[in-house]
Design a protein around this nucleic acid. Structure first.
Lengths: 225, 225
DNA sequence: ACAAAACTGAAGAAAAACTGAATTAAAGTT
DNA sequence: AACTTTAATTCAGTTTTTCTTCAGTTTTGT
């Protein structure tokens, strides 16, 4: 999962960054609204963890920005304020959840999983696409009730594909989602090809359906037809 | 937004009706399953706010009805029951959100907006021209429900044609759109002809209508007559 | 009927994608 | 901390797909 942390309290920010990164998420962080908007303009994230009280404005402004652009990022508001008004304001503008400081990092993690699950429309902790079942909690994948063992990158890739099933995903977008902005892939997608190949093989070993379609010159599409 | 409120508690029903109507929604209400089904049969709504405990049955039945009919209405369940089982049941059958009584009307409103946003974000972006349907998200093209597979140039071309349907498009304009201004095509349009030919063939294979008309000396026109 | 424009199929060139194996890096163990 | 195991990345060679070119054919407007 690719997460942007917007929080000006340095200690908390770094704690979140460390904690969530340990869980194999691609995390980036910043401390101001301006930085956040800059990052959101250039990259796609699955999640934005958004503090309300920021040095250069209220987090709500960012929420408005995302709403106007009709973006897909899930937003969890993090705030010391617990009034009903603030909660409603956040939810009205389009936040997916609201977390009041102080909180346990474990709870943050649980909420991230819950929101992601809800966004993907299904009920329990599983993300399902035909015979493919991804368990978000255990990071396990079952296909036709056979577990397939995936590496980190393969798992993240599959999750991204299933979350975007049916959509064409550009190689650049995929690479960016998996590696963040640190990766400089000047026309070289060898590392991507390599993981794609391995994931594809593992899926094909237990399925006759080639879900992972290549779109020549563009990227990939995960679909059943 | 057109909203149907299904709730047997008179006080709550009228409160919701008043509150949501103030917000420029068209609201109608009823108190029984039977009435709700009658209304849904005759009118289209954007939203159904559905109480579970009704005098003549459980709201879940209505949910099943809607699901079987594959209707587009968003459903928010309203219930005094807060058990995980009930929540899951509702969400599994296809509700979009679940609200536990008692609740603030402001929160109801926030959820309606949130669900609407989620729904409209997920809706696919299609470009349609007669029997030709181009799905921009999936980068697919269906003609009479048959998928035709296009290369990059062909797809871009078709998109440009449909975006400019009925208009005459000069070859130079088309070439510039597909290759940019760096292409030096001094009177030689062979490369264009080649792609035109291929696209035309793929369309003609599944249609009897020759959409792609040549305008001698000028270019092309994409039209159905 | 003529010349210009448009079309066609096939072939070669180019770009993109894939593969297996080797190397390097990271994670996990004792 | 040294060692083992696993995963990620790089690389060179191969295959696939698409793009472009070209020579010959057909259509079009005058």
């Amino acid at each position: 999962m690719k997460i942007l942390i917007v929080e000006d309290e340095q200690g908390l920010r770094e704690n979140m960054l460390t904690y969530l990164s340990e869980d194999n998420n691609i995390c980036e962080s910043c401390a101001t609204l301006a930085d956040a908007i800059a990052k959101l303009a250039s990259y796609n994230y699955d999640f934005v963890l958004l503090d309300i009280g920021l040095p250069d404005g209220e987090g709500f402004e960012l929420l408005n920005f995302l709403k106007k652009e009709i973006r897909g990022e899930a937003v969890i508001i993090i705030s010391a304020r617990n009034s009903l008004d603030d909660r409603l304001k956040g939810l009205n503008i389009g936040a997916d959840d609201y977390l009041v400081k102080p909180f346990h990092l474990a709870e943050l993690k649980a909420r991230i999983v819950a929101v992601f699950r809800r966004k993907s429309t299904n009920s329990n902790n599983n993300l399902v696409f035909n015979e493919i079942v991804v368990n978000l909690i255990g990071r396990t994948v079952f296909i036709n009730d056979v577990e397939i063992i995936l590496t980190r990158k393969e798992y993240d890739m599959l999750l991204y594909f299933i979350a975007n099933k049916g959509k064409v995903i550009a190689k650049t977008a995929l690479a960016e989602h998996l590696w963040g902005d640190e990766m400089d892939m000047h026309d070289n997608f060898d590392f991507l090809y390599s993981h794609i190949k391995n994931l594809r093989k593992k899926i094909l070993d237990v399925t006759s359906n080639d879900y992972l379609k290549s779109i020549y010159g563009i990227g990939y599409k995960f679909t059943d037809r």
